[in-house]
Design a protein around this nucleic acid. Structure first.
Length: 118
RNA sequence: AGAGCAGGCCGCCUUAUCGCCGCGUACUUGUUACGGGGAGGAAAGUCCGGACACCAUAGGGAAGCAUAGCGGCUAACGGCCGUCGUCCUGAAUUCGUUCGGGAAAGGACUAGUGCAACAGAAAGGAUGUACAGGUAAUGCUGUAGUGAAAUCAUGUAAACUCUAUGCGGUGAAAUGUCAUGUAAACCUACGUUUGAGGAUGCCCGUCCGAUGUAGGAGGGUAGGCAGAUCGAGCACUGGGGUAACCCUUUGCCUAGAUAAAUGAUAAGGAUCCGCCUCGGCGGAUACAGAACCCGGCUUAUAGGCCUGCUUUUUUU
């Protein structure tokens, strides 16, 4: 089982992100909102993380939360591998307003990934 | 030793596991192995100054903005250093000053305008009251009175203003280049060097101008490389200078991302605070995240260290 997170799994395409926000389906597991969309052009799952500036003014805080979300995805992405050839573009948005503990993020990501795999 | 003021420096550490972004070496050329590097003093605010780049032009004028003793430093500055004067403050004093520390927005009010508390009849194109003098007549003259100042003018420019000096604009999403693409392509209308229409904030002037403008049809991309990290670079040796700083010797290479790496988790330690059963338990460890690069300024900052000055107490 690999726990790495190479460049190919980062969601970068501006077009795809716009499409994801416009057409993606959402799934809420507090304190995280997941927006996802299956796209045939993807060779693997691609994810991005986001923290609204409205709730966290300081860049340091936003960076930390994004890193924690990314880390949690990296450790639990195997939950998602058993799909039928379908690949998702996923956007994790932290919607809480307080500084989180890693455990909260971790469990939220885990449960949302399990739901996605179904 | 404590307190205050001023200046400077540091700004958590170690290990393990799993990751991320560059670089180097090796080969079996790969989602390979090994080695080594990977946020700050402010990376922040984007307030000044430069470097660099581009612009169908950057010239003259008006306007606007900035600066303001004198001298120096610097690539440059509105920054820094020195110095003189002013003001505040401490000490000494032969009462003349001298020494130490600190502050600032220190050009000009014999060009004009504005403003000047209280008092006063009146504060700028004034002339009341009382007394005296004088005249054809009149505040024409003097004294008293208010005040810092009463036809003698003074202060004030973080008031207008004037003077001197400086300032073209834009800003790395700049710009160049490679690849892809019919891409300076196609159709229609308008316009034709006697100038449509534009650029330069304004005016003059200058410049560009068929690769134009408007509409239509159609097609696609949002990638790579350069810019971009070897530089007004860092540390050190010696010398010059009161200093800012300059010259010089030797050595070093010290983040380079691009939907944006520099991390996450766990354990242990360090420092500080609180509690008490004096050995533990609990808590805290700031401000804050590079985005082309430098020099400054400003603002934020838990805790700790160093230097100087002043002062208090104790000891000798």
């Amino acid at each position: 089982m690999k726990f790495n997170f190479p460049k190919e799994e980062k969601l970068k395409s501006q077009r795809l992100i716009e499409q994801l926000i416009a057409e993606g389906r959402t799934l809420k597991t507090f304190p995280i909102k997941v927006i996802y969309l299956s796209d045939a052009s993807l060779e693997c799952h691609q994810i991005a993380c986001s923290v609204p500036k409205r709730n966290f003014k300081l860049a340091v805080r936003r960076n930390r939360i994004k890193r924690q979300m990314k880390e949690s995805y990296r450790l639990h992405k195997h939950l998602l591998t058993n799909n039928n050839g379908k690949n998702f573009a996923i956007l994790f948005v932290y919607i809480g307003k307080e500084k989180p503990l890693y455990d909260q993020i971790d469990s939220a990501i885990q449960s949302s990934l399990k739901q996605l795999a179904l």
